[in-house]
Design a protein around this nucleic acid. Structure first.
Lengths: 235, 235
DNA sequence: GTCCGACATTCACACAGGTTAAGTTTGCAA
DNA sequence: TTGCAAACTTAACCTGTGTGAATGTCGGAC
């Protein structure tokens, strides 16, 4: 059984908002996003919700969940989502016969942790405009890498409500903020696509520093992560 | 060379505020806190600072930093601090000859990541009282475990200014908040000690749910890590 | 087409928390 | 014992963001 075959054989679909894992459950599978975005989130008893991380195609959702008795956060579909859910036994067997895979997962965990730290300072220190701009920069860079110059476009599957839950703002204030970004011609958001006329300008607005993404740290692990997960390659 | 001997031989002291690692540097050592607290932090270009995590005695600071080309955050001393700084070669040798050590570090990374997620929702969703109360609950539980009933006391080495940087509030508002907690007899803070008369009461104030600390799950995890990674990490 | 639900937008108003700037207390070194 | 810096308090004032509710818009199902 190869990795690719395992992904294909275990594919599964979810509708928008459907939970893959709920906080407190015992997660039993290793999940890899095939298409669409997944979100990690936590909720307070009264319903306040924080999106903790976004999982993009090619990424694994829950290596962390895999080793832990009870999930400390939930995982759900941002929109329609396809994932491969590889059972524990099969996952262990695959990792066993392919140590590069284990290394790749490890590297992905390290980058995920770095992103989580950046989200912490984003929410803790930046104001509304900076927060939204920063998140847009990150999502662009994670999909397309850092543009040498000028701008570009990429997928953007979040509603303004979800954007609010990810940035610790309210949906109303996110709306004001997105419009302000639009007014300044820093971004355009249309049809689930994000258009950035001048990336450097948006990055300046956000005080975006891409170091935490560890792009292009040509590491044995990083190198292999790209090929193993079938995701796009980084320079 | 045993682990304990290595710790003792590589001990080193830092004064309050001194940096052990700065963002952008290539971290070269594995660090373990012997006494005092260390803080991970990030700074924006204009000086706004967010404390990302606190490292308590017995914990390692930077397994993450160990595998990465350039540090994505800084590490400094909360107050006078003693750490063991084990050079890369020596660390690799130790991990090589003691697979349990690698497993333990792996587990510690998993819990650290879970704590980082909790800090994200703390800053993103809770109000000032809840944030401060939550952090106090966490620091108590990490030092003393969850009390079966009643309260207790523990070290608390943060100034109100640092508490502000950790919670995304201002120093002035932290002061108001701590006084409000005092007024409600939820906590007392004196001489670098935190006194909690009734832990359950403080936990309720904070909507504190200790699941994310994964207390008492250690053995299970070591087991699973072993099956996942064959008991050894990459170098 | 037209209906409907999901999203986005707008508005008026409220307030938690930020800002600035003094004090006051505490710890500790000389 | 004094002196000084770090830490903590207090106060007056301000603003970015939250709240609640109504309205507008768009795309897909039928």
């Amino acid at each position: 059984m190869t990795w690719e075959a395992s992904l294909a054989r275990n594919a599964r679909d979810y509708l928008k908002g459907a939970d893959l894992v709920r906080e407190g459950e015992r997660p039993a599978a290793l999940r890899v996003v095939l298409s669409g975005w997944a979100q990690k989130y936590k909720q307070l008893p009264d319903g306040r919700r924080q999106i903790l991380a976004l999982v993009l195609p090619g990424q694994s959702c829950d290596l962390d969940l895999f080793t832990v008795a009870r999930a400390d956060h939930s995982l759900s579909a941002v929109r329609r989502l396809a994932v491969a859910e590889i059972g524990r036994q099969e996952a262990v067997a695959l990792l066993d016969q392919c140590p590069n895979l284990a290394q790749a997962l490890c590297w992905s965990e390290i980058v995920t942790a770095a992103i989580q730290r950046e989200w912490t300072i984003n929410i803790g220190q930046r104001n509304a405009i900076e927060r939204v701009a920063q998140l847009m920069c990150e999502l662009f860079a994670r999909q397309r890498g850092m543009p040498a110059s000028g701008g570009g476009e990429c997928d953007f599957l979040l509603t303004q409500w979800q954007l609010a839950e990810a940035t610790g703002l309210t949906q109303v204030h996110v709306n004001r903020t997105v419009q302000e970004l639009r007014r300044r011609c820093a971004v355009e958001l249309r049809n689930l696509r994000l258009y950035i006329p001048d990336f450097a300008e948006l990055a300046a607005l956000a005080a975006f520093n891409p170091g935490y993404l560890h792009l292009g740290e040509v590491d044995l692990a990083a190198d292999r992560a790209a090929s193993l997960f079938g995701g796009r390659e980084q320079g």
